[in-house]
Design a protein around this nucleic acid. Structure first.
Length: 346
DNA sequence: CAAAGCGGAATGGTAGGTTC
DNA sequence: GAACCTACCATTCCGCTTTG
């Protein structure tokens, strides 16, 4: 059996109360001699306080919950890494729920994290454009806020609350403007899951950039992917078969962009000589793939750290939104379209 | 007599056991 | 089958003794 504080107190020859004062870092005064005896006994017995018992007496669970869509996706890996670093500095344990974009599982994880009495909840899973679901999410989130616990969102949600908000729209718009400036007129889009607000914001940004340049974007130029490498690969195959003469493919994240590059290579096309490809996210591998990826830098480290810090700050009278501007990183996966295409457009 | 230092016991949520 | 107990374990309020 693991040692309890009763065992430590017995071995040290003091009361349980005194042992607790030494071991819990209480401000209450304990003489140096007694303190030393308690620490020695605890060390001998390899005593570790029972976190559940601590939580039971209301001294907090020292845990925070994070809800993501997919832990294997580098977007969430980097985000959680940053959250984890700030949490560790504060002596907090991070519990992660990964829902695989299943809305019911999202809610179920929120309930489970609440059941574990996490002291704060960060919802890093992207929001969805579904008002009925948003209402259910709002009710779940209120369980936390009504009990004085903090909830912070990353990305746009239809749920009121403090938020770290990357500017997906303008990031995509700037990237779209880059392709237009390079001379591309026939651009295929590999979109993300349609319900996600992140997908919609990025798509709208692109649409605006093209519309401003008078370039049409028809539904057949948009293929839906699932944010995975394989999803990008298949979406690119479908796009190239359906829309002839594409000179650029813009994927809504880096993984799908890499899948698209592989699909193009398989068709004997060279990036960027024949077709330019862009990603979104600027994950750690984006600069190392061949060719290095032109993409939108999303400062995930900063976003995760700011979300965690926001979650550790008491709620204010008004909802706080931390806007995160996004910047395009131009690398070698983009170039002007092939000469004949440029001539054809005039 | 006040302050310092320590101990007793209540407390919390839940599962499993006991009693009527 | 409902109602009540108890154990789990760490923390902390309250109270007690000792010391200066």
């Amino acid at each position: 059996m693991a040692a309890t504080i009763v065992d430590v107190a017995k071995l040290a020859g003091v009361s349980v109360a005194t042992a607790s004062r030494v071991l819990s870092g209480s401000r209450y005064k304990v003489s140096d001699g007694v303190r030393e005896r308690v620490l020695k006994a605890a060390s001998e017995l390899q005593y570790v306080p029972n976190a559940h018992a601590r939580a039971l007496v209301g001294s907090g669970t020292r845990t925070v919950g994070v809800l993501v869509h997919d832990v294997t996706n580098p977007y969430f890996t980097q985000l959680v890494g940053a959250i984890q670093r700030v949490a560790a500095e504060m002596g907090l344990l991070v519990l992660i729920g990964s829902s695989d974009r299943n809305p019911d599982r999202d809610l179920s994880f929120i309930h489970m994290l609440y059941a574990h009495r996490v002291e704060a909840l960060i919802i890093a899973a992207s929001g969805v454009d579904d008002l009925e679901f948003a209402q259910r999410m709002t009710r779940s989130v209120e369980m936390f806020t009504q009990n004085g616990r903090r909830v912070v969102f990353i990305n746009r949600h239809h749920v009121p609350g403090d938020c770290v908000l990357p500017d997906n729209f303008n990031g995509a718009r700037t990237l779209g403007q880059l392709l237009v400036r390079l001379g591309h007129r026939r651009i295929g889009i590999i979109s993300g899951p349609e319900r996600l607000t992140a997908t919609r914001d990025r798509l709208e940004g692109f649409r605006r950039a093209l519309a401003d340049a008078g370039i049409p974007l028809t539904p057949e130029q948009i293929e839906v992917g699932d944010f995975s490498r394989d999803g990008g690969f298949r979406a690119a195959q479908r796009l190239m078969e359906r829309v002839p003469g594409l000179t650029a493919v813009a994927a809504m994240n880096d993984l799908m962009a890499i899948g698209a590059i592989a699909a193009l290579r398989e068709r004997g096309l060279v990036v960027p000589r024949d077709v330019s490809v862009t990603g979104f996210g600027d994950h750690f591998f984006a600069r190392d793939v061949m060719p290095p990826l032109t993409t939108v830098h999303v400062p995930l480290e900063e976003m995760g750290a700011r979300a965690m810090k926001l979650a550790l700050t008491p709620a204010g009278p008004e909802i706080r939104v931390e806007h995160i501007p996004l910047e395009v990183v131009e690398r070698e996966s983009t170039a002007p379209p092939p000469a004949r295409e440029r001539e054809a457009v005039g």
